[in-house]
Simulated scan of single mutants.
Amino acid sequence: MKYMINWNERPQGSAIEYENVQKRILEIFQHWEIPSEAKVHAFVVRVGEWGGSLLLEADDPLVVHKACSTFPAFQFDVRQVVDIQDAVRVEMEAIKWRDELPS
């Protein structure tokens, strides 16, 4: 299964609290490794923002849950996704089946 994981930093308190959270996030990230049971297709940060996107493939949804749980300073939006060619194929099958129904 493929997952599109988007994240933004949670709103913080004062400017100094925000700076401290930034340091902690980077400290944790320096030690974090992509899970061995996952394949990363894209891992990007949005320019000028404190957020990004990760396209990750994993058979076990708990791999995704654990990755998100590692960074509590972020708000995550996780969506299961499929490749466009697969989506179009099954959509065409559904349309064909629907068109064959008696009126």
Rank of each mutant, 00 (worst) to 15 (best):
S14A: 12
V21G: 00
I16L: 13
V88S: 05
P102T: 06
Q75A: 09
L26G: 14
I84D: 02
K23R: 13
S14W: 04
R46N: 14
V81S: 06
L26V: 05
Q12V: 10
P11N: 15
S36N: 09
Q80V: 15
I5R: 01
V63Q: 01
P61R: 12
L62C: 12
E37V: 03
L26W: 13
A42H: 12
R10S: 00
F76A: 07
A42Y: 13
S53W: 08
W50S: 10
E57N: 06
R89C: 09
F71R: 02
Q12C: 09
D59H: 10
V21C: 02
V78K: 00
G13I: 14
I16S: 13
I16M: 13
Q85K: 11
Y3L: 01
V81A: 10
M1N: 05
A94R: 15
S53N: 15
Q30I: 04
V78T: 05
R98S: 14
I95A: 11
E37M: 06
I95G: 03
L55Y: 12
Y18T: 11
E17W: 06
L62I: 08
L56F: 07
M4T: 06
W50T: 09
L54G: 00
G52F: 15
V81M: 08
A73R: 04
I25Y: 07
N8L: 05
Q12I: 04
F29N: 08
Q80Y: 04
P35F: 11
D60I: 11
V82Y: 12
A87I: 12
D60Q: 09
L55H: 08
M4L: 15
F74C: 10
G51N: 15
L26H: 15
N6V: 00
N8F: 01
I95D: 11
L101W: 08
Q80D: 05
A42R: 12
D83P: 02
M1W: 07
V81E: 02
H65A: 12
E27W: 02
E27R: 06
S53Q: 13
Q12S: 07
A38F: 05
K23F: 13
E100I: 10
Q80S: 08
K23W: 15
S36F: 10
H65L: 13
I5T: 09
M92W: 09
I34F: 07
W50K: 11
E93C: 08
W32K: 01
R79Y: 03
D99V: 01
V47P: 08
S14M: 08
W7M: 01
Q12D: 00
D99A: 11
L101Y: 10
V90G: 01
A15K: 12
D99L: 12
Q12M: 11
I84K: 04
V21F: 02
I16C: 04
R24L: 11
A94V: 14
A42L: 13
Q12A: 07
R10M: 03
V44S: 14
I34W: 11
S103Y: 10
D77G: 04
G52M: 14
M4P: 04
E17F: 04
I16R: 14
M4Y: 08
Q85C: 05
Y18P: 00
Q22T: 04
D77W: 09
A38L: 02
D60A: 01
R89V: 09
I34R: 15
K2L: 15
K2G: 02
P102D: 07
Q30F: 09
E17A: 15
L55Q: 10
W7V: 01
W97G: 03
I28P: 01
E27F: 04
G13Y: 04
P11T: 05
A38R: 02
